[in-house]
Amino acid sequence: MIPSAFEYHRPGDLASALGILSAYGDEARVIAGGHSLIPMMKLRMASVGHLVDLQSVAELRGITVAEREVTIGAMVTQAELISHDGLAKAVPILREAALQIADPQVRYVGTVGGNVANGDPGNDMPGLMQCLDARFTLVGPGGPREVPARAFYHGLYATERAEDEILTRIAIPVHAGGHAYEKQKRKIGDYATAAAAVLLTKSGGKVASASVAMTNLSDVPVWSEAAAAALVGRDCGAEAVADAVAAMLADIDPQADNRGPIAFKKHVAGVILGRAIARAWSRA
């Protein structure tokens, strides 16, 4: 497995990176950790003329934790995310989810930005970011703009990001209440058969607010407003959960693959969501 030849660029700042993207148009691809892109290149399923390595772009690094919001640079790795205690306190679901991504070696190099920007429905972070109502900063030749995670994904590998833009930062509101990231997979290193991210707040024994997102059950991550709505104002008992599951099932569109047929995936999605809700509720 040998990739085709390409030219390599390692810009030292964001402006240079954007300049290279503008210069080479659709021949250029940015690379972060590369563990999605490089296997595709080695299988010659992706061909890249100019590879723009973002490792030296300092603007893309760093984690800030403020009272109401955290921000994460696109080049922050899963391992850095996991080991950041302040982040784990402010947005604990991030660590819980990141530990379920790939394996240790891949987490050392795999970045949050790469995971959210790639548009691969198998990635865990996109659904999680939708659940958290994160916002992505995209910077292009015309300057920066902010796009909500919930409006970023259009289809398989198709996102709101234009070819000449770079996803630079992710802003995540600090959440209160309970959280859970549940993922069923065949083994470590596999994508999800189904995964669910759930945030809940509790007030007077009832669900005060909820957010639900599902992973690898459609060609895009699925933030299910209907599933969340089915929980709000209720006691999070069996009936409410069943309604949330039913609402979620109406929003997903899984495809059959080696992990199993559609009916199985739907069933597992329901079970996983039920478990995630129960766990989040127990922590709320």
Binding site: T193, G260, H267
Partner: peptide
């Protein structure tokens, strides 16, 4: 006996 085949037995 992967996940979906066991699930199918149960179903």
């Amino acid at each position: 006996h992967d996940h979906w085949r066991i699930w199918k037995i149960a179903r």
